Amino acid sequence: MRLEGKVAIVTGGGSGFGEGIVRKFVAEGAKVILLDRDEANGKRVAGDLGAACLPLVADVAQLSGMEAARDLAQSTFGGLHILVNNAGVGHLPAPMETIDDAAFDRIASVNMRSIYNGARALVPLFKEQKAGVFLNVASTGGVSPRPNLTWYNASKGWVITATRGMAVELAPFGIRVNAINPVAGDTPLLATFMGEDTPEVRAKFLSTIPLGRFSTPADMGNAAAFLCSEEASMITGVAMEVDGGRCI
């Protein structure tokens, strides 16, 4: 119960890594606002978790979405201590010059602007209470880019740098900021990264991961719970690779 008494917002919590984080947080004693644009998946996950998890349909690319989650956490659970910026999107593998404006803007809005919005909505509160934790979900693509995913890779590199910048600026206020860098996982985004989901393509991806398997939602939940708990009270500004050794 390392998160007992904590209240968290998890964006993109209705599937994939976000779902794993939500489930682990509740198992560790947290109350969670599950923010997702997919109402059906949000309700599915929250329905399994009872009163400890409340779904909210909102857009992380809009400041109003983050403010709504903040306000709901405070009014329903009586406080707010953690924001996990998990929501993210990718694009199908393609030469960088062929990615159109719409795809680029979507990546920038969801992968980058959402973190900016989260900071605007929550930093004043966290400063006031002299405590708070941000956890940003980046990617091994921000450390060791794969070809034909350049703008996705770049957005995750931005997340890592933003994490470090936030950590330095917010440390004097008792606020910690970390990131996790997952390798490709068996989630709805996997086909986006691979271009096509075939045994041959999966084998090629797995050959780049020394431990020989994809990340799982449970892997991300375990790492996130540690970094957001008091056990990690001396850890800030870290982008922890949860990647089976891919970035070695």
Results as ranks from 00 to 15, higher is better:
119 A>Y: 09
74 Q>E: 14
79 G>P: 05
59 D>A: 14
66 M>K: 03
133 V>Q: 05
83 L>M: 08
41 N>K: 15
112 M>D: 10
124 P>E: 14
80 L>A: 04
90 G>L: 13
108 A>R: 09
42 G>A: 08
130 K>S: 11
92 L>I: 08
64 S>V: 14
112 M>V: 15
91 H>R: 11
107 I>V: 15
127 K>S: 06
54 L>V: 13
120 R>C: 01
80 L>P: 01
63 L>W: 06
126 F>G: 00
116 Y>G: 07
42 G>N: 11
49 L>Y: 07
120 R>H: 07
70 R>N: 03
124 P>A: 12
92 L>V: 09
58 A>M: 08
129 Q>W: 08
64 S>D: 13
63 L>N: 01
56 L>S: 00
72 L>F: 06
82 I>W: 00
116 Y>N: 08
67 E>S: 04
125 L>T: 06
85 N>H: 12
86 N>F: 09
102 A>H: 08
131 A>S: 12
94 A>E: 14
49 L>K: 08
80 L>D: 04
110 V>A: 03
113 R>K: 15
58 A>T: 09
118 G>I: 08
81 H>S: 11
87 A>H: 07
81 H>L: 10
110 V>P: 00
70 R>E: 04
127 K>G: 05
125 L>S: 03
98 T>F: 06
53 C>T: 00
130 K>V: 00
55 P>Q: 15
66 M>F: 14
79 G>F: 09
110 V>D: 02
125 L>V: 05
62 Q>D: 06
91 H>K: 12
40 A>F: 07
77 F>V: 00
66 M>P: 00
57 V>E: 11
78 G>M: 02
105 D>N: 15
116 Y>R: 13
92 L>H: 14
64 S>N: 10
49 L>G: 05
101 D>P: 03
75 S>R: 15
83 L>A: 07
49 L>V: 02
48 D>G: 13
72 L>T: 06
96 M>F: 14
58 A>G: 08
44 R>V: 03
97 E>A: 15
71 D>I: 03
